[in-house]
């Protein structure tokens, strides 16, 4: 009898084992993020070699001295990857911050005040969502300059609509709630209601999405660097891949290694993003639709 009904038995047991796998994966993702932050902070201070100097024969294959080989100018690939972390992380954190601030403010205002504020913000969001991000970023960076801070602002501007949509949805949901209305009837002003009730209760999904936004920023900035719109004064992983493309046949490691670094970082960000969405709600592409 019980057997007939609990056909789910073995799966449940499998599910019981899964959390440990999941925990391990999350721990690894956290470790990667920590490492990336440390490398970004220390930049070239702890790299084994000077990332900008030619130290060995060009395109020499991996060896004990140069575990990831050297690039077409004889620079140590490992050192350049380590140093390139800063550019990646600054762009990721910076543009996500821009997106969160702009998107949250506009989204909360639109969702709470509705009316023409909402119409204006929503139309803007729609337009920015429709316009191809990479093309927009290319246009802006090509015209306005490829300094890193320009790229930060440009990426932030291409990503804020997603934040704004999440914040707006939450504000819309909360503004009809009784405790918000009660606050309004008691005479609390609109902006204060947002700060007191709406923002604290509504920012979960926005925060959960931050990790996903950082991943998006990493991808976009790597793409920009790859097609030649990175900040030329900085070492970037995308730029390394572009530079190494000419000697692909002779020195594949100069492409494989920085790409792998990108992939590992993105895997970690996506993993943490998935977890954050599960914990804090809202968030991934399924909810954005």
């Amino acid at each position: 009898m019980k057997q007939a009904l609990s056909a789910r038995g073995p799966i449940l047991r499998a599910a019981g084992r899964r959390p440990s796998v999941r925990t391990t994966v999350v721990a690894v993702a956290c470790a990667v993020m920590f490492l990336a932050l440390v490398l970004a902070a220390l930049h070239s201070a702890i790299t084994p070699d000077d990332p900008t100097k030619s130290l060995a024969a060009p395109n020499s294959s991996p060896s004990a001295a140069h575990p990831f080989g050297t690039d077409s100018l004889g620079r140590d690939v490992l050192s350049r990857i380590m140093a390139g972390t800063r550019y990646t992380m600054v762009l990721a954190v910076g543009s996500t911050a821009v997106s969160l601030v702009v998107g949250t403010v506009l989204g909360l205002l639109a969702g709470y005040f509705v009316g023409w504020t909402d119409t204006a913000v929503s139309r803007l969001v729609e337009m920015f969502l429709t316009i191809p991000h990479l093309f927009l970023a290319i246009l802006l960076v090509a015209f306005l300059g490829n300094q890193w801070w320009v790229v930060v602002v440009v990426l932030g501007l291409t990503m804020w609509p997603v934040t704004a949509r999440l914040a707006r949805a939450e504000a819309l949901r909360l503004r009809g709630r009784e405790f918000v209305e009660a606050s309004r009837i008691a005479g609390v002003g609109g902006l204060r209601v947002i700060v007191r009730h709406v923002a604290p209760n509504g920012l979960g999904p926005v925060v959960a999405n931050a990790s996903m936004q950082m991943a998006e920023a990493v991808l976009l900035s790597a793409g920009l660097s790859y097609i030649g719109l990175g900040d030329p004064s900085q070492i970037s992983w995308g730029g390394m891949i572009q530079e190494a493309q000419g000697s692909f046949q002779t020195a594949p490691w100069a492409i494989v290694c920085p790409g792998a670094a990108l992939t590992v970082l993105l895997l970690s960000l996506h993993t943490l993003g998935d977890v954050a969405v599960r914990v804090l709600g809202g968030g991934n592409e399924a909810d954005i639709v």
């Binding site: 991943a215 991808l219 790597a222 793409g223 790859y226 995308g238 891949i241 493309q245 692909f248 046949q249 594949p252 492409i255 494989v256 790409g259 990108l262 992939t263 993105l266 895997l267 960000l269 996506h270 993993t271 998935d274």
Partner: peptide, 22 residues
Amino acid sequence: GLTLYSIPIFWLGLLLVYFLAI
């Protein structure tokens, strides 16, 4: 799915070129 989601497309393309073409 998660891995493909995390691989930059230009790098993926280059890997395809390296292994399947070169």
